[in-house]
Computed example of a mutant assay.
Amino acid sequence: MLITEISPADDPLGSELLALQQAAYAIEAQIIGDDRIPPLHESLADLRAQPLLWLGAVDEDGRLVGAVAWEETAAEVDVNRLVVHPGALRRGIGRALVKEVLVRAGTRRIVVSTGRDNAPARTLYERLGFALLGEAEVIPGLWIANYALPA
């Protein structure tokens, strides 16, 4: 697996990334019992408009099997989304992508949010040393868990 910088602005990669994101968030929607996850409903134009930095995981056949996106400031890195192809789950792809972001973050604080009931994602972040900051209801009935990895 190769982890490389990617951009949704590139064609045909943008469409491939959008399809990957929709497939991954459809799985999360099943897990948490709620399909109101904003990235699940993005168009390609919406995806391209996000001010995010991206890394992609490409398998030996050249297929995009995972991606992570984040925003950063001088003090903090905010992991905005982590997506893994449903056919490639439980292979360490998400872990490898997050670990690469950790390396790039250096000494900055790293934050991430996930569905409160998304046990696989929560387990991943907790195993990487993230501490639970709390839970929040972002829209009525949709809860997230907020995590941080101190600087």
Rank of each mutant, 00 (worst) to 15 (best):
L47H: 06
I32M: 08
A148S: 13
G115L: 02
A45C: 02
A45E: 15
P86D: 09
A23E: 12
H85L: 07
L17R: 04
A26C: 05
G66H: 09
R91N: 08
L124C: 05
I27N: 05
W70H: 05
V98P: 00
R48F: 08
R63K: 15
V84A: 02
A49G: 14
S43K: 08
D10P: 00
I110A: 04
E76W: 00
E137C: 04
L97D: 01
D78P: 01
M1F: 10
T4W: 04
R91A: 07
P51W: 10
A75Y: 00
L13P: 06
G92D: 05
H41V: 13
V68D: 04
G106H: 08
L97F: 06
G134W: 07
R108K: 15
Q21T: 10
Q21E: 07
R48S: 10
N146M: 11
K99T: 10
L142W: 02
E137H: 05
A24F: 12
L128E: 10
E42W: 15
A121W: 06
G14D: 06
G141N: 08
E28P: 04
V84Y: 03
L53D: 09
Q21K: 03
N118C: 02
L20D: 07
A105H: 10
G129L: 08
E16F: 03
E60T: 11
L64S: 08
I6Q: 12
I144T: 14
E137P: 01
G62E: 13
G94E: 04
N80E: 14
R127S: 14
A75W: 00
L52A: 11
V98H: 01
L55M: 05
A67N: 03
D59L: 05
P120A: 03
D117Q: 11
P51I: 13
L133Q: 14
H41Y: 09
Q22V: 09
R116Y: 14
N146P: 01
I93L: 01
N146W: 00
A26K: 11
A74H: 06
T73K: 00
I3Q: 11
I139R: 12
W143N: 01
L18H: 07
W70V: 14
A29N: 07
A69L: 06
R127W: 05
V83S: 11
A119Q: 07
L64Y: 02
A26M: 03
R36C: 05
R108H: 09
T73C: 01
I139C: 00
L40E: 06
R108C: 10
A26S: 15
R116H: 12
Q30N: 10
Q30H: 09
L89I: 12
Q30W: 00
A29E: 06
N80I: 01
R122S: 13
A45S: 15
D35E: 12
E126I: 07
L149K: 13
L124S: 05
V103F: 08
L18I: 11
R104K: 13
R81D: 06
L47I: 07
R108I: 08
L53K: 09
V65F: 01
L20T: 08
A136F: 07
R90L: 01
T107V: 09
T107P: 02
D34A: 06
G56W: 03
S43P: 12
T123P: 00
A45M: 04
E5Q: 14
L18D: 04
P86W: 13
